[in-house]
Computed example of a mutant assay.
Amino acid sequence: MMIETTKLAPVIETAIYLCQLHAAKKNIQIDCLCPEALELNINGPLLEQALVNLIVNAIKYSDPDKKVLVLAEKKSDSVAIYIKDEGFGIEQKHLERLFERFYRVDTARSRKLGGTGLGLSIVKHIVQAHEGTIRVESKLGAGSTFIITLPIGGSSD
C-alpha cells in the first residue's frame, strides 16, 4: 500500500464530489469542515474510498432535505474525521457488530436500499491499514456519527 504525505482536505472534497449526485436526488446538503493545511501520511485514494462508503451510507439512511457533515480536526497525535448525518440512527444493540462483513442492521430495508453488508467492513479494513480506528455513535431517530481516528505519523511501510 502506497503511503505518502497528503493534504486531507482535497481527499475529503473529492469523496464529497463523488457523492453529490446521490445527495442531490434526496436534496441532501453535504458540508465539509477541514483545515486546508492538515496533512497526513495516507493512501489518498484508499481513504477516499472509505469516506465515499460512509457518505453514501449517510445519504442512504437519511430522509430527504437533511444534512451530512464531514469534519476533520487535528488532535494532539492524531486526526479525527467525523461523518455526521441526521438520519434514522442505529439501535444500540447493532453498534458493536456494525463493522462485521455481511452484517446488516435491517435486512428488509437494506435489500430495498441495496446494501450488501460489506461497505462498513471495507471501511474498517482501510482504516486499520492506516493504523487507525473507526467507531460509531448513534441515537435512534437522531442520526449517526462515524469517527475515523488516524495517527499523524502514519505507517512507515
Results as ranks from 00 to 15, higher is better:
42 I>R: 07
94 H>D: 04
71 L>K: 04
140 L>M: 13
156 S>Y: 15
58 A>W: 01
54 L>R: 00
34 C>K: 02
41 N>P: 03
62 S>Y: 10
102 F>I: 04
1 M>S: 11
45 P>E: 11
49 Q>P: 04
148 I>E: 04
134 I>K: 02
86 E>N: 11
62 S>K: 09
102 F>Y: 05
157 D>I: 15
64 P>N: 01
72 A>D: 00
3 I>T: 05
22 H>T: 10
133 T>P: 02
152 I>W: 03
97 R>M: 09
38 L>H: 03
61 Y>C: 06
106 D>S: 11
44 G>C: 06
66 K>C: 14
60 K>V: 00
102 F>Q: 03
123 V>P: 02
108 A>M: 05
62 S>E: 12
126 I>V: 09
70 V>C: 07
100 E>T: 10
66 K>N: 11
90 I>Q: 09
71 L>M: 06
28 I>F: 12
143 G>C: 13
87 G>C: 08
19 C>S: 15
152 I>R: 10
53 N>K: 05
39 E>C: 13
120 L>N: 00
130 H>E: 04
150 L>W: 03
141 G>L: 15
67 K>G: 04
154 G>W: 01
62 S>P: 09
14 T>L: 14
8 L>A: 02
23 A>F: 14
9 A>K: 08
13 E>G: 03
1 M>Q: 10
94 H>R: 03
62 S>V: 08
66 K>Q: 14
129 A>L: 09
92 Q>F: 01
119 G>P: 04
10 P>H: 14
131 E>I: 01
99 F>N: 07
6 T>I: 05
49 Q>E: 12
14 T>Y: 14
141 G>K: 12
112 K>Y: 05
127 V>K: 04
151 P>I: 15
112 K>V: 02
121 S>H: 15
108 A>E: 08
115 G>I: 02
51 L>D: 01
91 E>Q: 13
65 D>T: 03
45 P>A: 11
6 T>A: 01
79 V>A: 10
14 T>H: 15
36 E>V: 08
53 N>T: 02
17 Y>S: 11
82 Y>F: 15
154 G>D: 05
52 V>A: 01
123 V>S: 00
70 V>S: 04
157 D>M: 15
130 H>N: 04
84 K>G: 09
146 F>A: 08
57 N>E: 12
31 D>P: 08
129 A>D: 10
76 S>V: 09
90 I>P: 04
111 R>T: 07
39 E>F: 05
